[in-house]
């Protein structure tokens, strides 16, 4: 297996102070800086906006020890899919919007000192949808967790399978779940974190298969989207339907953990399950040999 290693740069984004934004839930005006410093949590009502993957990684891998793998994997256009825009154009604008080449960042790092293979999805890239790249990167990450015998952590934020890759997207559900069957047989821990929102094919595959499932407060989590359900049953949906709290009450997740406390809780779980301490030599992916100019292939 090939790894392309790259360190995620740990730096604070420059946000001009005093830029105001309206909270989507409580409609209060709050400064963007306050929201960002609070991991995209509204300081007034606690509403959680999707957290970009790099910010999530910075918050969990606090000492900066996160080695990205497969950073150069990009989507193709196997169906030559065109709706109002051709798929490659959508990819370009998604990349611009999210600053990422795809909807998931994967890597191996040190969380509270424990070695962990971690995937973080990013909702800003086409709604965190799963196409071939998301499926392949997650599958390779699972295989890396097996190879290195370290726990797997997947933080989901996704509307489900990506339409633009058709049935190939659908089959990523089977591919990732098959890799998790191997992880299971190897006796390796998988902690799944469901954030707002986690729906569709993502929930119907890896996100629901954690040994331990953690949800963020108020997150929308479900198989079908609320709009589709409402249309199908022609009834209003009960209050709080498909929230993290609803899932906890129905036995579908183990716990709800606020964003700020996630790192600490994950470290505690990793510790109880006997996760190995992170050692760079054993756990960091092999560095890609720098290619010298003019060197023979």
């Amino acid at each position: 297996m090939r790894f392309f290693a790259r360190r995620i740069k740990v730096k604070k984004r420059d946000i001009p102070a005093g830029v105001w934004t309206k909270c989507r839930r409580c409609k209060e005006m709050v400064t963007s800086q306050e929201v960002e410093e609070n991991l995209m949590t509204c300081p007034k009502c606690g509403y959680l906006s999707p957290l970009p993957a790099p910010a999530r990684i910075r918050s969990l891998f606090a000492d900066g020890e996160f080695h990205e793998i497969d950073a150069r994997m990009r989507p193709a256009d196997p169906l030559k899919f065109v709706d109002s825009l051709p798929y490659p154009k959508r990819q370009q604008s998604a990349e611009k919007r999210s600053g990422l080449p795809e909807a998931v960042v994967t890597g191996i790092g040190s969380l509270g000192g424990f070695a962990v293979a971690c995937a973080v999805m990013d909702f800003e890239y086409m709604g965190g949808s799963m196409g071939s790249v998301v499926g392949e990167k997650i599958t390779r990450l699972i295989e890396a967790a097996i190879e290195k015998r370290i726990p797997l952590l997947i933080i989901s934020s996704s509307g489900g399978a990506r339409m633009q890759e058709g049935a190939l997207s659908l089959l990523q559900l089977a591919k990732t779940s098959a890799a998790l069957a191997r992880l299971d047989a190897e006796g390796i821990l998988f902690v799944s974190v469901m954030t707002n929102p986690t729906t569709g094919g993502t929930t119907a595959s890896f996100a629901s298969l954690g040994d331990v499932i953690v949800a963020e407060p108020g997150a929308l989590i479900g198989f079908a989207g609320p709009r589709v359900i409402k249309q199908t049953i022609q009834q209003d949906l009960p209050d709080g339907f498909q929230t993290a709290e609803f899932l906890l009450a129905h036995g579908m997740v183990d716990m709800i953990v606020p964003r700020r406390e996630l790192g600490g809780r994950l470290a505690a779980i990793l510790s109880l399950f006997g996760a190995p301490r992170f050692r760079s030599a054993a756990h960091a992916p092999r560095q890609r040999r720098p290619r010298r100019e003019g060197a023979e292939a």
Partner: peptide, 26 residues
């Protein structure tokens, strides 16, 4: 498609499908 309804979500439609995918693979 799998049924999109209230009971289906309450009883874990996504989990049921995901478990089948993992089980069928093995």
């Amino acid at each position: 498609g799998a049924y999109p309804g209230i009971g289906a979500e309450e009883r874990g439609q996504a989990e049921a499908i995901a478990c089948n995918l993992r089980a069928m693979a093995a």
